[in-house]
């Protein structure tokens, strides 16, 4: 907006510049949003409409696709599994991440920097490289094919530790010291002083990890095989290939996919403000 006042370039140049931006951003948005929109409209089509490439919007919206997914399929069960497993995992990740980030930022101890380096080094490791050792550990603990296994294996998030640490570093150390002088333990200082001041980081962390856990496919499919423990991605795939009907019920597959996404959209709608703040690095602290 400031360009209106500060831009001294000639009018045609300015128009071209704006057009260029609109074009680039518009194209990027279309490429990003199109598959999603396609999925949404296809969820309301008949099978014939889907296969007819000449029509984009459904001739008659098939709301029954959605209702049959909600009432007559195991998809809601998978959504429920995903939602509560993700919620528990994120809660544990927030507690463990916040504690470590607090120690890294506010406590003085000899191995502080080394500890952070080690933590970050594990972030560089490809996730796939940890599958086998993690699988063996879970097998030893008899936690394969269970929610416990899914949860225990994801209690720590390196990304979260990093994100919270960056947020905590914006807080003047004096505030934590003041809380300590006021009689607060480290635990209280973390949750009553540091946490409210870095709300954006916490919400961003929670939301991003909730989404990735909710959508996680590879790891859950490695350690769970009973359908009662399926999370949505695994459940969708199972639904997709149900009864050997691979790829035949496109309308229902699209409807299932659309239904699965709805909880995330709702969540994002409520936390969007904080999410953008957290990613942008602004923690909402004002003197």
């Amino acid at each position: 907006m400031n360009t209106r006042y500060s831009d001294n370039r000639a009018l045609p140049v300015r128009i071209l510049s704006i057009l260029g931006k609109v074009l680039i951003l518009g194209t990027a948005s279309i490429f990003t949003a199109f598959p999603f929109i396609w999925m949404m409209v296809s969820a309301l089509k008949t099978k014939a409409d889907i296969l007819n490439t000449e029509i984009f919007f459904p001739t008659v919206p098939q709301w029954s696709n959605i209702t049959s997914i909600i009432f007559d399929s195991p998809i809601p069960r998978y959504i429920f599994n995903s939602a509560w497993v993700s919620a528990v995992i994120v809660a544990l990740q927030i507690v463990s991440g916040a504690m470590l980030a607090y120690a890294l930022v506010f406590l003085k101890f000899r191995t502080n920097k080394m500890l952070f380096a080690i933590v970050m080094a594990t972030y560089m490791l490809p996730v796939a490289a940890t599958y086998i050792p993690s699988y063996i550990i879970l097998a030893d603990w008899k936690m394969l094919d269970s929610f416990r296994g899914l949860i225990i294996s994801s209690t720590v998030s390196i990304f979260g530790i990093f994100l919270l640490r960056q947020g905590f570093m914006q807080i003047p150390k004096g505030l934590v010291e003041a809380a300590r002088m006021d009689g607060a333990s480290h635990w209280r200082a973390l949750w009553e002083v540091v946490c409210p001041m870095t709300k954006a980081s916490f919400i961003t962390f929670g939301l991003m990890n909730f989404i990735s856990t909710y959508n996680n496919y590879m790891w859950p499919s490695l350690i769970t095989k009973s359908s009662e423990y399926f999370l949505v991605s695994q459940g969708l795939r199972a639904f997709f290939i149900r009864d050997g009907a691979y790829g035949t019920e496109w309308a229902l597959v699209m409807a299932a996919s659309a239904v699965v996404v709805i909880p995330l959209l709702v969540l994002f709608a409520f936390t969007q403000k904080w999410f953008i703040n957290g990613i942008g690095g602004e923690t909402g602290i004002k003197g």
Binding site: P172, G174, L175, E177, A178, A179, R180, M181, D182, G183, A184, S185, V193, M197, I285, K286, G287
Partner: peptide
């Protein structure tokens, strides 16, 4: 927290 000593900081350190 267990010393029962209060402190006033240079930059006040009020919880915002």
């Amino acid at each position: 927290q267990d010393r029962d000593i209060a402190m006033v900081f240079q930059n006040y350190a009020l919880y915002p």
